[in-house]
Simulated scan of single mutants.
Amino acid sequence: MSDPAPAFRVEAVDYASALPELRHVRETVFVQEQGVPLDLELDAMDPQCDHVLARDAEGRPIGTGRLTPERRIGRMAVLPGHRGQGVGEAMLEALLARALAHRWPSVSLHAQADAIAFYTRHGFLPRGPRFEEAGIVHQDMHRSLGVPTPVEGFEAARAALVGLVARARRELCLHTRELDPGLLDRPEIIEAIRRLVQDGGELRVLLRDPKAAQDALSPLISLGQRRSSAIAFRVIEEPVDLNFAGAYAFNDRGGWYYRPLGHRVDGETRIDDPARVRQLRAAFQEIWERARPCSEFRALGL
């Protein structure tokens, strides 16, 4: 059976004619709910922006978003009674489509702190420290369009991996040296993996140094003990495979994160590249068939 059609629609709108509807949503969310001063919510850039509007089945406005000439997504707002229904995701996709139509190489946004995870799932990575804007904590985030997004530093690496895991439906594969301390031991990443396998997904992990992972008390090992039917570890031993210097992860929805040097987190990522995932999966599968089951972890109770 196909998924039911959403009870809303999202469309690009003319700013002048849609202004009353845009203001209704934005002032309800930003001014009345969040306490943003009206003179900060409205700005001179509004008429120059691309705007999208979400309407419910009766045509009433329920969400807004805009794309500025500075290649920044903003004013993302959904009325309280319509949150958690995919409205924000649909508006974000519509704005990204507009940016692609402009042939822009990338977009950025200032995400409110409680919305960072939402944007991470859609391929945006944090850049720089958090800051206050209109009295609300924000994070600058960015994403490349049509090409991989560079990953620089641990915060961006963690966001890339969390987004990759969160978007997986049935499969996640990791090629790692020693379960990546600083990445695969982070609570938000372990929790995302736990949700994946709890919902019926599977995780396969190739690693080189199981003893180092044990010594570091990697939480992924204990999660594997509890979810042994869904999480499998194998150890790389063949010289041809040990010569590979990098590390990578991919899911079953076209998302990947690749690091040229496995001992570093810097690399690149993309959430919508099934062709590259097919290449990574083929390479991973060859190594998987040559690797041995990780008896070291079974000795701990697996």
Score class of each variant (00 low, 15 high):
179 L>T: 02
178 E>T: 07
182 G>Q: 08
209 D>C: 02
195 R>H: 14
187 P>V: 10
193 I>R: 02
191 E>L: 05
199 D>E: 14
199 D>L: 07
193 I>K: 01
205 V>G: 08
205 V>C: 14
208 R>V: 11
181 P>L: 06
190 I>E: 01
185 D>Q: 07
204 R>Y: 08
179 L>E: 03
182 G>R: 06
185 D>C: 09
178 E>Q: 14
209 D>V: 01
186 R>N: 13
194 R>D: 15
183 L>K: 13
207 L>D: 05
201 G>K: 07
185 D>M: 10
185 D>F: 04
199 D>C: 08
189 I>C: 14
207 L>H: 07
202 E>M: 00
178 E>D: 15
204 R>C: 12
182 G>L: 11
184 L>N: 14
206 L>N: 07
193 I>S: 01
185 D>G: 13
184 L>P: 13
207 L>N: 06
205 V>E: 09
194 R>N: 11
194 R>F: 03
182 G>F: 10
189 I>G: 02
209 D>R: 13
192 A>S: 14
189 I>M: 06
209 D>I: 00
191 E>Q: 13
202 E>F: 01
197 V>P: 08
201 G>Y: 07
186 R>W: 09
182 G>M: 09
190 I>T: 02
198 Q>H: 12
184 L>A: 13
189 I>D: 01
191 E>W: 03
201 G>W: 07
206 L>E: 07
207 L>M: 15
208 R>L: 10
194 R>L: 04
181 P>I: 09
192 A>C: 08
200 G>N: 05
183 L>D: 12
179 L>S: 05
181 P>T: 08
206 L>F: 06
190 I>V: 15
202 E>L: 02
185 D>L: 09
192 A>H: 05
203 L>K: 05
188 E>G: 06
200 G>A: 07
179 L>K: 03
179 L>G: 02
189 I>A: 15
179 L>F: 02
196 L>T: 11
200 G>H: 03
184 L>S: 13
187 P>Q: 08
181 P>F: 04
209 D>M: 01
206 L>D: 03
199 D>T: 06
186 R>K: 15
198 Q>G: 15
195 R>L: 14
196 L>P: 09
183 L>Q: 13
185 D>Y: 08
189 I>L: 15
182 G>I: 10
189 I>R: 02
195 R>W: 12
208 R>N: 09
199 D>H: 11
201 G>T: 11
204 R>W: 12
183 L>T: 13
181 P>K: 06
191 E>I: 00
194 R>W: 01
198 Q>A: 11
190 I>L: 14
178 E>S: 13
193 I>N: 01
205 V>L: 09
193 I>W: 03
195 R>T: 12
189 I>K: 01
180 D>T: 04
205 V>D: 04
188 E>C: 05
202 E>C: 02
179 L>A: 00
